[in-house]
Structures are given as C-alpha cells and as structure tokens.
Design a protein around this nucleic acid. Structure first.
Lengths: 189, 189
DNA sequence: ACCTGAACACCGTTCAAGT
DNA sequence: ACCTGAACACCGTTCAAGT
C-alpha cells in the first residue's frame, strides 16, 4: 500500500506529488494531508517536496485546479434555457462529487468560484439567451453560481442528507433546488 | 492588551474561556485560535482549560452554540409569507455577519444548520401559511435553509463581493438572491 | 476539585550541507 | 539542479504530580 509510484522514475515530479496528494485527500480528507505523510507515501524526504511546490497552500491550490480543469469541457446542450441551466448545474455537481473531500475544502476558501472561468461564461451566455436584460446578467449569474455552490457544499458535507431524512435525499434536494432557482430566474425575464 | 479578564475572579470559568476564545476568533480568525494562545490570553496554564472544556472541537462547538443562540428570539412579523420569508433570511444574515470568522468555520462543519432548531421551525411554519402542500414543506424548507446558508457562506468569505465588482455587492447580491428564492417558492404554491 | 509541568506525537518550514 | 538531515517554532493532548 505504501511506497507507491516509485518504480521506474526515480525523479520526483510535480505530477506525481499532486497525484499522491489527491489520493490522500480523496481517501482520508484534507486534514489527513501533511507534507510528511505525503513524503512517506512517495518514499521521499519531506523536504524534497518543497523543490516542486512552494508550500502546502500552493499544493492544495494545485489540487483544486487539477480537479476543476474538467470544467473546461462543458457542453450545455441545445435545449431551452431552462434545460441548459439545469445541465450546467448538474455538470457542476458531478465535478464536485468526484472529489468530495477536496471540494469541501475548496468551498471554504474564498476563490473557488472563478469569475470569468468557463463555467461562469457559459452561465452568463445562457442567461442572455433566456432574455435577461444585460444589466442584470452578471449579478444574476453571480447569485446563481453562489447558490448552486452553496447547495453542493452542503450536499458534499452531508447537511442535505441530514436535513431530508430520506434515502434519495441528495438527488431529490438538488433537483428541487435547481427547479426552484430556474423558476426564480423565469420570474425575472 | 494581554492578560485580560483576570482581575476579580481567580477561578477559571467556562464562560470566561468561551468569551476569550470568541474574542480571538473574531479578531484573528479560527486558525489563530490555539489552546496555548487562549491560555496565554487568560493568564493561565494551557492545560487548565481542559478541566472546563473537553477539547478544541468541543470549544468551537460551544462557541457556535453561544453565537447562534440569538436565533431563539426570531420575530418574523405579521406581513405576507413573502415578507416573513424575507425577514427570516435577513435575521439569519445579521446573525451570521455578527461573527464572520466563526460562522465561516461553522458552515464548513456538517451540523451547523440544525433540523428542528428555532429557525427551521419558523421556516416551515411560514411555508405552510404560504400554502405549500404539507408533503413538500420539509423538503422545501431544507432546500431553502441550505441555499440561504450557502449564500451567507459566500458573503462571509468574500466570494460574493469578488464576483460582483460593485460597492454594495453584498447587499445587492443578498437581496437579489432572496427575491429569486421567493419567486421560486411562489411558483410552487 | 482544580491547577500545573513535563512529555509525547505530531505539524509546516528554513537552512546549510551534501550529490 | 535536486535531495537531505537537523533544527526551529509551533500544535493538541495525556498523565502524574501538586494544592
């Protein structure tokens, strides 16, 4: 189990570091990630890591970027703006659920939702095709991004499941929330 | 500045511990709170604290409960259900903004939004008077609680201000979001 | 009952020294 | 250029000893 990824390449690379770190975070959470444990996992001196990564914060940043790069290829479909909005929300969701522990950490930081990121731009485009006045597009986009983000944050940390006592709590809660938001937008076009 | 709260009472009390801890969190953030620094602030041996508080996690829990106890006295007014919902949201907001650093931490935990807490109960009551079918009250309540919570989380951590580049970004964003949610609920009654 | 000092098992990070 | 060991300045927490 330990001493992974050390067979062919004796050189330590940033990619290997990120991969091992993501592994720890995915299985044991962000709190379980320490430079020392990560080094142990890589079979390397703890200080070697600092030659490829500035510090622990930068490492976590790199992890977040690695995982959210999947957002660069979002297809929103050709349906109505309601369907496009729903698709976008579900894209955001599956991206978040793929690495729950990391995303839970990322939401706590203050720069997770990126202005002018691919997701943001798509969202604004959809709102424009919905017929929202240009002066309201950005503000509404920000609010929607933040609301869906918060929604996913509570799904990922288990709050949603706790509040709704049912089996399909997360799916049902997310679907209801998205529908509610779409209705809210519809009232403003 | 240091050695505060040690004049009359030589006995260490849980109340004094919580107060000093809240002070540190309010001014320097949750990460700046350590048992050792807290003890220094109280002019006491770090280990003395453990006679009044089980551990650091319990201390932070106590802090959260201390601050959110204000929710016990929420008045929602006599207006329409829309006005009541808006009032409730703004009560939640002022409670959150009073201790930004602590609330920022609390949102990251998985048990901040309490089912059957005073806020939850009020929310469900308002939804019933709005005419929402009983079978949907709890689920809708959960979703609204979670959405407003996420909204406040991003206001408190600065995301909202960053996404909307204006001066009154937080106020405008919150108002818009709440109106959008109310419209969403209106579409379901 | 309450307080304390020493100690344990950890952290992130710096820095000088090695190859 | 990359790696490493020792060291610094911190953590939370346990435990035996004091009053």
């Amino acid at each position: 189990m330990a001493e992974s990824a050390k067979s062919g390449d004796q050189r330590l690379t940033k990619g290997a570091i990120l991969q091992a770190a993501l592994n720890i975070v995915d299985t044991d959470g962000v709190d379980a990630l320490s430079m020392r444990k990560l080094a142990g996992q890589l079979g390397v001196n703890p200080m070697s890591i600092y030659h490829h990564v500035e510090n622990k914060a930068a490492l976590l940043d790199g992890l977040t970027r690695l995982v959210t790069d999947g957002a660069r290829h979002i297809a929103v479909g050709e349906g109505t703006w309601q369907e496009q909005l729903r698709n976008l929300a579900y894209e955001f969701r599956s991206l978040s659920l793929a690495h729950r522990n990391l995303i839970r950490y990322a939401f706590a930081s203050d720069d997770f939702i990126q202005r002018d990121g691919p997701m943001w731009r798509t969202l604004c485009t959809v709102l424009r095709t919905a017929g929202l006045p240009e002066s309201e597009v950005e503000r509404t986009g920000a609010v929607l991004a933040v609301l869906v983000g918060g929604l996913l944050h509570t799904e990922v940390n288990g709050t949603m499941r706790r509040l709704i006592g049912s089996g399909q709590a997360d799916d049902a809660g997310f679907a209801l929330a998205v529908q509610l938001l779409i209705d809210g937008v519809a009232a403003r076009v």
